[in-house]
Amino acid sequence: MKKIVSLFLIVILFSSCKDDVECCVNPGGSVTLKFTHNWNGTPITEADFNQLKFTNANGDQLSIEKLRYVITNINLLDTKNRNLVDLGQNTGLSLTIPNQKADLINLKFRFGFKDEDNTDGIYQDLNTVNFNVPNMLGGGYHYMQFDGKFVAANNQEAGFNYHAIRAVNRTDPNNLVFKDTSFEVDLGEIEIINDTTIEIKMNVAEWFKNPNTWNLNELNTVLMPNFDAQILMNENGQSVFSLGEITQ
């Protein structure tokens, strides 16, 4: 009986120490990125969708019906990476990166895809959710699909499709001219001590505001083939992300 008990104890001992071996070499912990959304400071969740409750810088009343965008090459991961944030489906809102060393980090990522990562049809997860850009526009992927309705100048509701992609000039369909309109977001220095949650805020109102006041009566749909509209989106996008709360 005693033998059995001691055997039992040995087994317990062995199975419990497995995880502890590396415990004290690298203090630090996991880093969780939390993507939150607001309209000039007022939080937005899926519950706020489909209501004409927002007013943009141009004074147009609007609703959000779809908001999804892709974040790539987060510099905390050393390999190429991407994360599709979909506020309507509540997916991709949180991303945990395990085993970060205690360190002062400079958190950076890219909104959309760099040209070299924007190859047509290669990401199965994004194909499955229809995130592709048509071939006649150079293929690859959307950076963002932001759909909603606005109250037009004639007082009628109309849809808008604020779709950000790599800008393409189609003046000569046989010789498309591209401009990479993805951009890097640098959130500055953050000190990682132990498990850390970092909030990354998107102020959705900024897409319509700064530096270009967006007029939905002029720019609402069919923006994918519109080179100039893509440049405006790229410029306005620079100020939409900011660092939020950091909890350790």
């Binding site: 194909n127 229809n130 592709n132 048509p134 749909t221």
Partner: peptide, 23 residues
Amino acid sequence: FMEEEKGDCFHCHGSENNPLWTD
């Protein structure tokens, strides 16, 4: 089917990259 200013069907019904032809 693919042109945004014409059919713009692909945003919901897929494309050569989503051969299910539905979202």
